[in-house]
Amino acid sequence: MSAQRVGITALRRVTATPSAFFTQNLAKSIVASSISTSQSRAIATERLTPDDAHTILSQQRLKRPVSPHLDIYDKKQTYFTASIWQRFTGLGFSGLLYGYSIAYLVAPLTGLHLESASLVAAFGALPVAVKGGLKFLVAWPFVFHAINGVRHAAYDMAWGFKKTTILRSGWYIWGASVVGALACLML
């Protein structure tokens, strides 16, 4: 509230509740009742042609992010439970499948031995720790993708879509996928 407005409010209060002291000041009361209480401020307007407006809109639209954005997630909120991890894990497996299948198809041309027997022999020759690590690297995204996929099906039925539920189920899925992947190593 500006100083001027405070003064006006005080003066109006004086006129509304007359007292023995203030009503002696009749001239001030009369002045206050005649002051307009509506504010006025200078407004600078600018004339925009349709072309200018179009240019401004175009400039604004240039600043729009791509959706779904890759680096817009708040890490403290739902990043690690986000659906983008479903996409990362799925892309990893699909990329592996596409890469291997096409490589297997053209193996006669490239001369690589990609048949299962030689792959099994090569994998079996690795140290146990490396084998376990590689298996976990495959098993964890697989279990995560499977469990999180079921959650997404539940989302499609509009189940479990409260934000607290999303956060909690996300952490459960991380825990369950790590445990599940470790269980897969025991098989």
């Binding site: 499948l97 596409y98 299948s101 096409i102 490589a103 297997y104 198809l105 048949e115 299962s116 792959l119 099994v120 022999a121 994998f123 079996g124 084998k131 298996k135 098989l187």
Partner: peptide
């Protein structure tokens, strides 16, 4: 995708199949 489908068909018919191959790799 067409190449992958042909490649997987080749793998299924001339090799041991995806399920069996993964099982053998897992127990290698």
């Amino acid at each position: 995708t067409a190449l992958v489908a042909v490649g997987l068909y080749e793998f299924e018919t001339t090799d041991v199949g995806v399920t069996e191959a993964i099982a053998r790799l897992w127990h290698a």
